[in-house]
């Protein structure tokens, strides 16, 4: 049996504060690279093969995956052209709230509140982190209003 050590949170926090903007930029890049990771996984393409296909080094792909280097449009363009895919960008409001409004035997009704025009009635709330439990693809849902 062993104990769990506590990390030195002071230096971690101070590093974060000092480099917040750069880290946030890396996170934007990583959001895209996660999609690339899924794409590679689904199509059983290795990072080595991706590098060869789009004409860059494996080290560069590795740096993109680790967030050390950030994506650029040249990378996206090469990816689209070689694999004949289209990368889509969307600008969505950040404060999007999903409310589960009622439960039934066969379905769960969810109000996707995008512009605060819905009035949340009989709202069920959860303390759980929504990101972990409800990954909603808002494109595949149609919003219905009750008159």
């Amino acid at each position: 049996m062993s104990k769990v050590n506590k990390i030195d949170t002071i230096s971690f926090d101070s590093y974060l504060k000092k480099n917040r903007t750069k880290i946030d930029e890396s996170l934007v890049s990583l959001r895209f690279m996660k999609e690339v990771d899924y794409f590679l996984d689904y199509n059983k393409i290795t990072q080595r093969k991706l590098a060869d296909d789009i004409g860059c080094t494996e080290a560069y792909i590795s740096q993109l995956m680790s967030g050390v280097k950030k994506i650029n449009t040249s990378f996206i363009n090469k990816l689209e052209k070689h694999y004949e895919v289209k990368v889509e960008f969307k600008i969505l409001p950040k404060k999007e709230c999903n409310y589960i409004t009622s439960f039934a035997n066969t379905f769960i009704q969810i109000n996707i509140n995008i512009d605060d025009s819905f009035e949340a009635l009989n709202m069920f709330s959860s303390k759980n982190s929504p990101i972990e439990y409800y990954e909603l693809d808002t494109d595949s849902y149609t919003i219905e209003t009750n008159g």
């Binding site: 230096s11 971690f12 590093y15 974060l16 480099n19 880290i23 890396s26 996170l27 990583l30 959001r31 690279m33 996660k34 690339v36 990771d37 996984d41 990072q47 590795s62 995956m65 680790s66 967030g67 050390v68 990101i131």
Partner: peptide, 27 residues
């Protein structure tokens, strides 16, 4: 890890990426 700025950066990015659910399998 702390001795090298590059590895500190990588480590912090992984933790921050995990927080917002954007980490990939390489991290």
């Amino acid at each position: 890890i702390n001795r090298d700025e590059k590895t500190v950066k990588k480590f912090v990015i992984v933790i921050e990426a995990v927080k917002v659910n954007v980490a990939n399998k390489s991290q």
